[in-house]
């Protein structure tokens, strides 16, 4: 019997993804569902046993099935606090990383001597920052006396901005602004080290800007500033969204993030149900926040349709 071409192609499609499908069911979906079930199990009895996990569901009455979540949000002293700090940090660090990496990508896209070398240096964090080395150098830089990385950032850290704004009489803005500037400058190490991939993606997007757009802009006498706002930004805007999602996901799955640290701590204390409840509520909250922002940002994005 001969199947029509389209049907046969569909079958081949299943064939191509079958390896992944089996693997995903075994190593991803089943553990995922199981971990979700842990949220609704009795924390005291959820322990590894001979032949598997000793599972016992929480009774479904009087809201008892939510015990683990109640523990996470009401009893645990750290969870809510960590959650808020991590959310706040992510929300203001992400735009900073995006702006910074776009800026660097624009610079690295220009023609100058030693560009290859500069690119090599700026992508260096890509190969180091995901590993344990980063934790060590990060810690060391903060704890040694001769921390030139931090010293470097203190160059900008003098109160000049504050003084200027005070002089201009804008006291209230001054506090907030200098706080932001302070966090930017003291954080420059983390900023530079966590934007490797983002720079890479932006650079690729910049190189995809058609030559005709550049030509037209220079014919019309656009300044570099106008060129950036009218040409560069619209063309890279889809990648801004992609980078945004990447940055958020990256920062919230990091093991050195406070909530994840707490989850791991609970896991190593055998409190698997609490850990699962915390991890899942954290995951859900982050997803909701990302979803809202993506839906909002999507309206301002320019997609080139040929």
């Amino acid at each position: 019997m001969k199947l029509p071409y389209e049907r046969r192609k569909a079958l081949y499609g299943y064939g191509f993804i079958s390896i992944w499908l089996v693997g995903t069911i075994l190593w991803f979906l089943i553990p995922l569902v199981e971990s979700f079930c842990y949220c609704f199990m009795n924390n005291d009895t959820l322990k590894p046993n001979v032949g598997g996990m000793n599972k016992e569901w929480l009774p479904f009455k009087d809201g008892q099935w939510l015990t683990n979540f109640k523990y996470a949000f009401r009893v645990d002293p750290k969870f809510k606090q960590y959650l808020l700090t991590v959310l706040k940090d992510t929300l203001y660090q992400t735009p900073m990383i995006l702006i910074f990496s776009l800026f660097i990508a624009v610079i690295l896209n220009q023609k100058f001597k030693g560009r290859g070398f500069a690119r090599a240096i700026f992508f260096l964090p890509v190969i180091i920052a995901t590993g344990p080395v980063y934790n060590i150098i990060n810690g060391n830089i903060a704890s040694t006396g001769a921390d030139s990385g931090a010293q470097f950032s203190t160059l900008f850290e003098t109160d000049m901005v504050d003084k200027l704004l005070e002089f201009l009489g804008v006291m209230n803005i001054s506090d907030n602004l200098s706080e932001i500037i302070n966090t930017v400058t003291t954080n420059i190490f983390g900023l530079v080290w966590s934007s490797g991939i983002q720079i890479l993606i932006f650079l690729a997007a910049l190189q995809n800007i058609p030559v005709s757009a550049k030509e037209a802009a220079s014919m019309e006498g656009a300044t570099a500033w106008e060129y950036f706002w009218k040409i560069t930004l619209p063309y890279v805007s889809p990648m801004i969204l992609a980078n945004f999602i990447y940055t958020v996901i990256d920062s919230f799955t990091k093991t050195d993030n406070a909530v994840m640290g707490l989850v791991l701590e609970k896991q190593s204390d055998w409190n698997y149900a609490y850990a699962a409840a915390m991890a899942w509520s954290y995951f859900a909250i982050v997803m909701v926040v990302v979803g809202i922002i993506v839906a909002f940002v999507n309206r301002f994005i320019f997609y080139e349709v040929d």
């Binding site: 075994l26 190593w27 991803f28 089943i30 553990p31 995922l32 199981e34 971990s35 842990y38 590894p48 598997g52 996990m53 919230f252 799955t253 093991t255 994840m260 989850v263 791991l264 896991q267 698997y272 850990a275 699962a276 991890a279 899942w280 995951f283």
Partner: peptide, 12 residues
């Protein structure tokens, strides 16, 4: 994040 599925995966 891998942290969510690591315990069930360990049991598997």
């Amino acid at each position: 994040p891998t942290q969510i599925i690591s315990i069930p995966l360990y049991m598997t």
